[in-house]
Design a protein around this nucleic acid. Structure first.
Lengths: 344, 344
DNA sequence: TTGAAAGCGTTACCAC
DNA sequence: GTGGTAACGCTTTCAA
C-alpha cells in the first residue's frame, strides 16, 4: 500500500521533532541530550524513547555554532607522509584518539598550501586548537593566531612565544659528530637541507651548528667544501654525496641531517662502488623505523613522544589549564648499528 | 594614553560589524563575500576595504549551518600510520589537498574506536563525505550510511553496494605463488592474518585463496600446517614463521600476505640462522617504500593510486556527478628483488 | 541594487 | 521541572 499523501516526508529528525513527539519543549530535549540536571526521570525516559524511535542524532554544526567550539584540532605539517612526521602524528593520535576531539590534517607541500592552511585554521571557529609541526611561523602568522586566542602548540619549532616541544638539535649534531670523531675520523662531511627553504625548516641548520662546534672543539678542520646543502630528500642527498665523493680529499665519514638523507648518502656510496662502513662511515639523525632494517647508525630522537608531548600540552590549555611546562622528552642517544667503523 | 571607556572591546568582527562600518546591510556583505552578482562595484569595493581593515574572516561554522555542508571529508582507516595506509592517504591528499575540503582522520585501532567513528561520521552534518579504508562495513553500518545519504566510498573493500576501489587480491595471491612455483619451489607456506579479526580485514584471506588455487593448478600439495595465520604485525609473522621453520618438512619458500609480515618472516629466518634467499625464499605483497631498501621481492599493488581513485570517485559524487565507474588502476606486478631464488 | 527578515539546529537563560 | 525564546553568524528570499 502506497503511503497516504498526508504522511510526512521522512527527513532526518530535528530536536523539535523529538520535542513535539514527546510532548515536551525543545529545552527539555536539549537537557536530556546533555545529561543536564533538572529533568524528571519519567520525562527523561520518555524523551529518550522518542529519540530512539526517531533515530534522532543531534546536529554537530548547530551545536558548534551555539557553543562556539568545534571539537576538532587542526594539525599542520609539511609532507605528512614522511616517516618522521608520521611518527609524530602517531604520538598526537595517542593523545587525541581517545578524546572527543577530531583531528583535521593539513598537509603542506607548497608555500601556497601553507598560506591557505594558516588562513583557514587561523580562526577560532574552525578548530579549537592547532598543532604545528616543523614549520616556523612568521611574526604575522603568530599575530593572527594570537588575535583569535587560538590555543596552539609547536612541535620541532622553537621560534615563538607559543608553547612548543623540541629537542636539542645543536647537541644532537655534536653528539653525532663526536661519535664519528671517536671512531677516529678526521675528514668528516655534512649533508643537510638548504638554509633558506620555503618552509623554514631549521633543524638541519641547528644540527650543522652542533657539527661545527664539535669539530672545532676537537681541533679538527672543516673544509668549506665538506658542507653540502640541498632541498630535503633522498635523491638530493645522493647528488650532494656524489659531489663529496668526487673531492680530491674525499671524506671518510658523512653526517646526514636526517635518516632519509642518510639513505641518499648510502645510495650514492653504493653507486660509487664504496663499501659502508669500510670505505665510508655514515651517521643519520631521527632513527625512523626503517633505520633499523637498514642497519643505519643514527641519533635517535623521540619522535612519537614529541607528538604526545605536544598534544598533551594542547589538551591542557584546551581544558583551561595553566600553560604547563612541556613534559620532559627522553634524551637523544646514538644508536650504533652497521654504518660507522674506523677509517681505513 | 589608556583607551577611553567607550572604546569598543576589540573582538573578532562579525558580518554585521562589516555591514555597519560600510554602511550597508549584512545581505550585501554576504553577497560580496560569495562573489554573488547584483552588487554595485563601488559598494563591493567599499565592503572589501572594510573587510580588509577589520581583518574580517567569516565563520565557517555559521556558514556550514546555513548551507548544510561542512567542507570536510572523513577518512576512516585502521592503523593510519602503517605504511600501506599512509600511501593511500597520500593518494587521497593528492586529490583533496587542493580542494576546498578538509580531511578529518579517524584512526581505528580497537572495535570501540570503530563504532565511535562510524557513529560520529555516519551523519550527514559532520562530514560531507566519507572514505573508508580496509574496513568492511556491516549491513547495519551500511544502512545507517544510506539513510543519511552520506556519499561514501570504500578503498580495499568490496563487500558493499557502495562505490569502491580495490585490486584483485585473489589474482595477486596466485601471481606471487606462481612466481615461487616458477623458481622451482614445491614446499611453499603462507603467513597471513587471522580469518576473523575485529576489523574484518579480508585481503589476506583473498590472497590465500589465490595461493591455494595456484598451488592446486600446479598440482602441488599444500599441507595444512603450511598455512599460518595470526594478528597482523611484523612480530606475529615472525612467530608464525618460527613454527613453520620448526616443521619436520620445512618449507623452502614463504608467501607473506603483506610486506610488513614478510619482514617478520625475514626476521625469523635470520634468527634461525637461515640465509635468504639461499635457504629460504620470501615474497611479500604491497611493495611499500621500505621493500625496495630491504630488497624484498613482492607483488606491487598501486597503493597511492587507490587513494587517488577513491578520492576522485568521492569528489565526483560530491559534485553531484553520476556514480561513475572507478578509474582503472595499474595492474599488479611481481617486483623481483633479492629474496627469491631456486630452492637448494 | 539594496535592506530587512526568516531560516539553519542547537544551547541557555528566564519565566512560570 | 518545564516551556518559550533569544542568541550563535551566516545565506537567501522578498520587497522596495
Amino acid at each position: 500500500m502506497a503511503s497516504a499523501p498526508e504522511d510526512p516526508v521522512p527527513r532526518t529528525p530535528r530536536i523539535r521533532d523529538v520535542a513535539a513527539r514527546a510532548g515536551v519543549g525543545v529545552g527539555t530535549v536539549s537537557r536530556v541530550l546533555n545529561d543536564a540536571p533538572g529533568v524528571a526521570s519519567a520525562t527523561r525516559d520518555r524523551v529518550r524513547a522518542v529519540m530512539q524511535e526517531l533515530g534522532y542524532q543531534p546536529s554537530s554544526t548547530a551545536r558548534n555554532l551555539s557553543l562556539g567550539r568545534t571539537l576538532t584540532i587542526g594539525v599542520i605539517a609539511p609532507f605528512f607522509t614522511s616517516p618522521s612526521v608520521v611518527e609524530r602524528l602517531r604520538g598526537i593520535d595517542d593523545v587525541f584518539g581517545h578524546s572527543p576531539y577530531d583531528l583535521t590534517l593539513y598537509n603542506i607541500e607548497t608555500p601556497a598550501q601553507r598560506r591557505a592552511a594558516l588562513r583557514r585554521f587561523g580562526r577560532r571557529d574552525r578548530v579549537d586548537g592547532l598543532i604545528v609541526i616543523s614549520l616556523p611561523l612568521t611574526p604575522g602568522e603568530l599575530r593572527s593566531l594570537g588575535r583569535d586566542g587560538l590555543p596552539a602548540v609547536l612541535i620541532d619549532v622553537a621560534n615563538a612565544p607559543l608553547p612548543h616541544v623540541g629537542i636539542d638539535d645543536v647537541g644532537g649534531g655534536a653528539m653525532a659528530t663526536r661519535h664519528l670523531l671517536d671512531a677516529g675520523h678526521r675528514d668528516i662531511a655534512f649533508v643537510g637541507d638548504v638554509e633558506e627553504n620555503p618552509f623554514g625548516f631549521a633543524s638541519s641548520e641547528r644540527r650543522l651548528e652542533g657539527f661545527r662546534a664539535a669539530l672545532e672543539e676537537a681541533g679538527v678542520p672543516l673544509p668549506a667544501a665538506y658542507v653540502r646543502r640541498g632541498p630535503f630528500g633522498r635523491a638530493t642527498a645522493g647528488r650532494l654525496t656524489r659531489q663529496l665523493l668526487a673531492l680530491r680529499r674525499r671524506p671518510t665519514a658523512i653526517f646526514a641531517a636526517s635518516d632519509v638523507q642518510a639513505f641518499g648518502v648510502l645510495d650514492a656510496a653504493a653507486r660509487a662502488g664504496l663499501t659502508v662502513p669500510d670505505d665510508l662511515s655514515v651517521i643519520g639523525f631521527d632513527d625512523i623505523e626503517v633505520a633499523e632494517a637498514i642497519g643505519l647508525t643514527t641519533v635517535r630522537q623521540p619522535l612519537r613522544e614529541s607528538g604526545r608531548a605536544g598534544a598533551t600540552l594542547l589538551l591542557q590549555s584546551l581544558n583551561g589549564g595553566p600553560p604547563d611546562s612541556p613534559p620532559p622528552l627522553p634524551d637523544l642517544t646514538v644508536v650504533r648499528r652497521r654504518t660507522v667503523a674506523r677509517p681505513a
